[in-house]
Design a protein around this nucleic acid. Structure first.
Lengths: 228, 228
DNA sequence: GCGTTCTGTTACAGGCTGTTACGATGGCGT
DNA sequence: ACGCCATCGTAACAGCCTGTAACAGAACGC
């Protein structure tokens, strides 16, 4: 169960019935992550989330029975790290928790892509300056713009599971992540498949661009970035 | 039966009627493990457990007639190594004791799975980095994600009996909330069966992945882990 | 304007996993 | 020894998720 998973990692669950409780815990102990239900009696979970985020830098995952899109949007706008609709798959929740914690542990939010660098991973080379990708054998591989962008996002966040939404957001820096994001669910899947077909030796059993069932995708290789 | 087991291991049972008794024993002799009943007259077993744990590093197994979930949670939060609901199967208790002792002897809690290592067991090879499993004959065997995860858990805890709940937790699954395992806790059984069918020469009479009747499963082989 | 390339959508197929049901097996009391 | 009961093994099934081929619209270069 969840509690056991927490214990296994040396963590414990602290139930909180009110915002005051949360603040007390924040002040007292070391809080890794907050699970916040949007529908809290008379209080408004969104506002609480916004307030907490404005003051503290704690990862927050929001839970709500309302899976309406605007609600979801509100959750993100308010600064939550993730959003899950009730009823949710507990397994999925765990995966999300792990992802959020891993990210929080490493640094802060999603890392950005950088320029004028050369990345090396598993024998491959990606020259960000000239947008050149070379295989371990030295062959140059042509990637489309979108595929390149995806690769950049992955290289900037190695070993960290990324949800499709996160990837989509990172790719569309300019585009507004409207509910279209939810509608265009499989776009990322297809994009991932296309990138795989170009940089995986065996696209059927990917070694680099692995899928995390119920979550998203991970770049499963160490990345070395060198200044050019 | 319990007494027999204790004698067999050169240990004895020291009854304690109060927290003071326990402390006396802790101070006097070498205590391997504490069996603590949650419902102690006017005292609160949970608090005692928490206090003892805060001071000493002794394995504690808690026993209670209240199998309610929050009770169980409290038991874990308080730092107990295991929790058993009354009425319990004496055999199960015995197995749990063994498991807790074995674990305490090796290190602390449930070992984690590791990455970038190669495990060898009974001629088999598991390359954690590339998720490759090879039989003694050198054939590569394809495991599903879940099967791989199970194998990792087993390899990390060889010779240690694991309950279904522990396995489920380690796999990030939602364990059955109901303490009564008569419920639908068969997911692990099925998973074990599937793994057996792939890594056991004779799945009907398993040599590696043995079942501990009334308890769970054990990985009955020595494991050698090498850094990659 | 026209053809080429890229990208998102859709639909279908296949894999994986939990659930259920039923038979097999082992333990234990009589 | 026998039978009862709990536990375990596993086949079959269904739901969910993912991979991907095919198609159509968009973007782009000429």
């Amino acid at each position: 169960m969840l509690t056991q998973f927490l214990q296994q990692n040396g963590s414990i669950a602290l139930p909180a019935a009110s915002e005051a409780d949360v603040r007390r815990h924040l002040a007292t102990g070391r809080i890794d992550l907050i699970l916040l239900d949007v529908m809290l009696g008379d209080e408004n979970g969104l506002e609480i989330c916004a307030r907490l985020r404005a003051e503290q830098d704690v990862p927050i995952i929001m839970i709500s029975a309302l899976s309406a899109d605007h609600q979801r949007m509100s959750g993100y706008q308010v600064g939550a790290d993730d959003y899950i609709a009730k009823p949710f798959n507990p397994q999925l929740l765990l995966a999300r928790i792990k992802a959020v914690l891993a990210r929080a542990h490493r640094s802060s939010s999603l890392a950005h892509r950088r320029q004028n660098k050369t990345f090396r991973f598993a024998g491959w080379t990606y020259d960000a300056k000239h947008d050149e990708v070379r295989s371990p054998e030295g062959f140059q591989v042509a990637l489309s713009r979108r595929e390149t962008a995806l690769l950049q996002v992955l290289l900037a966040n190695p070993r960290i599971p990324l949800t499709r939404e996160e990837i989509a957001t990172a790719l569309d820096v300019t585009a507004e992540s409207d509910s279209a994001m939810g509608a265009s669910g499989r776009a990322i899947d297809v994009l991932v498949g296309r990138l795989r077909s170009k940089i995986e030796k065996q696209p059927k059993s990917p070694q680099l661009l692995r899928t995390e069932r119920g979550v998203g995708y991970v770049f499963a290789a160490d990345v070395i970035a060198e200044e050019t």
